[in-house]
Amino acid sequence: MTTANQTILLVGEGPLFEELHYLMTSNQYQVIDLKMAETGTYQVKLALEVMNTDLEKKKDSIVQLDRLLSLEVPIVTTSLAITATEVASWTKHPERICGFGTLVPLVERELIEIAPALQTAEEITPQVTTFFTTLGKETEVVVDEVGLVFPRILSLIINEAVFAVMEKTATAEDIDIAMQKGTNYPQGPLAWADQIGIDEIYAIVNGIHRDLREERYRPAPLLRKLVLAARTGKKCGQGFYLYPQEEGIRV
């Protein structure tokens, strides 16, 4: 499939927004925002919505997209903090909503998960799969549940590591070293949280907790406090570690 001159409407905020924007433009897609779409001069192939930390904003965007885009255009939304099924329930045309999930940095993700909502029409999922394939990613279609598979498992590992920090079982540094050297994790969970964004991780854990309503998914209080204190990780210079300004941009 040629991607040249195909238009993707990208909506939302956060680390995924920037990285997806870059990934799409470097694969010859034309990426537009909501304002540009409203002019009616573009023929949108697919819309991507990536807000996770503010579900009110997410809802506003989704409702606007649903109103603006013609019926056959798939709206692909992150189902990291909420199910795709719930997002679809906000729309008049839920059959074109489909969930997906991944975490930054996208260069490290060979595979992206796709989660059709209960309402998603049969012909939508293959279009979404094809779209991610054109971005050079493999795909796996899973059942719609908050956080999908990788973001859910990683967020809960991080949540447990945060409980351990809170309870002074060990320092953040030692926990990260332990998980890398004792069980071969590609990164220490707390440095990983700093890289992804602590607010994004909190949104996932909180979303699973809100949806499944089990104590098992209770977010570590320190995780929430770090979000409230705006110590969300590398991007703001402070999370579980400090990132001096000059090192802040280092990936």
Partner: peptide, 25 residues
């Protein structure tokens, strides 16, 4: 690495969701 005397210490505790959550999923 240093750990206090808590169940599973560091690795066996923090790694639990890797298995448990996969099983739950």
């Amino acid at each position: 690495v240093m750990a206090t005397d808590t169940p599973g210490f560091i690795v066996n505790r923090v790694a639990r969701p890797y298995y448990n959550e996969a099983l739950r999923i």
